[in-house]
Nucleic acid binder design. Structure first.
Length: 421
RNA sequence: GGGGAGAUUCCAGAGCGGCCAAAUGGGACGGACUGUAAAUCCGUUGUUGUAAUGACUUCGAAGGUUCGAAUCCUUCUCUCCCCA
């Protein structure tokens, strides 16, 4: 058994622990869990931090449990949220649960003997429980005073907090208790925003059962300037290839801030200390980013996806129009799978009078939402077509690449393929 | 149940009868500089455009007053605070 705490410590993944957590982990194989609420159809790279905690737990010889929050997802966690959220409808939740379950399954080893991973869904033990039973079994053990003192609750007293969200901590607390009783799970981990919810669980276990349970949290991942991590211009970075293409995923890592690299390497990769420290000292930061992007893209997606992403990136960022012309069409299609493509009929293209129309209405607003938007960007010199800066009165006589493509650049990094069909 | 405050463009937050498509800040996007980095500086940030003190749609919802409303009145919906 490896020393998990030591490992997390040097990786900077340790925020807080309850007393004696380290002793417990070093004493015996310990089962630990982390919950994931099905708020979307895919996990994102923020969740990946939690997943890595489970991975490290398992690698250290302990038993990881991934909990899908089928029940808690129906209520909504107020932690870190500034306002009450809308309910997701049950059908969406069920769909999300299934998707998340599949994703989680990819990261853990479910066939590792004694410390095989397990997946549970808290809906399974909450669906049978009635409200009265819940009040008697759970509610009685904790005081309102205790619940009110939580950070997540305090922050919401001004802006409003429904009874439902207020109760969330009890549900999560009961999860821990249930897993403690039935699966001998003694540890719950999570982001530091989960601390309050987690210790509600250890408290419940202590009061109901006199049992000893432990908590361990990891710092919330933020950008160097304190902002939320894991968002790009186009929103969240999802682990699902249909929601964030491998090309975009690869680009995301490639575009990370230099200052964040040491942190990212420690949190997201499984590389050992020597390797990572060597990267810290590497002066060519782009090289480090390429390695990171490679590691992440191959692990989350696949070797092949990674290769396509690299090829697409090379062709778009470094290649000339000639390189483009010379690439075989079927290869081109494959490479550009993840690059946004916009289709337009030849008919429509031939009737399009100017660049502004082409970039806005003719392409259904996918490149630019409106004509005004397109014009503004053209005026600012932010648009290139086939590598040539375009302006409002650029004539519509572009050479079609492969007789059917136009390569459109919005800014330096956003590429689109306009495809004539 | 009683009393008070409020709902403004992505967010925060000004405006409180015409000069308001709506200050300011943040975010986002673009440009310059670079390394597909950061910092910095500059620009853009409702639609449409004969490009204009133009037209159209926006200031929680629906009505009304007025030559004219984000601004006044009525009703409704929602939120917060205080008292019971």
């Amino acid at each position: 058994m490896k020393n998990l705490v030591e490992e997390l410590r040097w990786r900077g993944m340790l925020q807080d622990m309850t007393p004696d957590t380290e002793q417990q982990l070093n004493k015996e194989m310990t089962a630990g869990y982390i919950g994931f609420d099905p708020t979307a159809a895919s996990l994102h790279i923020g969740n990946l931090v939690s997943i890595m905690l489970l991975v490290h737990l398992q690698k250290a010889g302990h038993k990881p449990f991934a909990l899908v929050g089928g029940a808690t997802g129906m209520v909504g966690d107020p932690s870190g949220k500034s306002e009450e959220r809308k309910f997701l409808d049950e059908e969406v939740l069920r769909h999300n649960q299934e998707c998340i379950k599949k994703q989680l399954a990819k990261f853990l080893d479910f066939d590792a003997g004694a410390n095989s991973a397990e997946m549970v869904n808290n809906y399974d033990w909450f669906k049978e429980m009635g409200f009265l039973q819940f009040l008697r079994e759970v509610g009685k053990n904790l005081t309102i005073n205790y619940m009110m003192s939580k950070d997540s609750v305090q922050k919401r007293l001004e802006t409003g907090l429904s009874f439902t969200e207020f109760s969330y901590q009890l549900l999560q607390g009961y999860d821990f208790y249930y897993l403690f009783k039935n699966k001998n799970v003694k540890l719950q981990m999570g982001g530091s925003d989960q601390w309050g919810n987690i210790v509600t669980g250890t408290e419940l276990i202590r009061r109901k059962d006199g049992g000893d349970a432990f908590a361990l949290t990891t710092p919330l991942l933020t950008k160097a300037d304190g902002q939320k991590f894991g968002k790009s211009e186009s929103g969240n970075i999802w682990l699902d290839a249909t929601m964030t293409s491998p090309y975009k995923f690869y680009q995301f890592w490639l575009n990370t801030n230099d200052a964040e690299l040491p942190k990212l390497l420690r949190i997201f990769t499984l590389w050992d200390r020597e390797t990572i420290e060597a990267f810290d000292n590497e002066p060519d930061k782009n090289k480090v980013k390429r390695e990171l992007a490679r590691e992440m893209t191959t692990r989350i997606h696949s070797e092949n996806d990674y290769e396509q992403a690299v090829k697409a990136s090379e062709l778009l960022f470094k290649g000339s129009l000639d390189d483009f012309q010379q690439t075989e069409e079927n290869i081109l299609n494959e490479i550009f799978e993840g690059v946004p493509q916009v289709e337009i009929s030849k008919e429509e293209y031939s009737h399009t009078a100017n660049v502004v129309d082409l970039l806005s209405v003719a392409t259904g607003g996918q490149l630019f939402a409106s004509k005004g938007d397109a014009k503004r960007m053209l005026k600012d010199g932010g648009v290139s077509i086939n590598r040539q800066k375009a302006s409002e009165d650029t004539p519509m006589n572009f050479e079609l690449l492969k007789e059917k493509y136009l390569l459109v650049q919005k800014g330096k990094k956003n590429y689109f393929l306009v495809k004539l069909i």
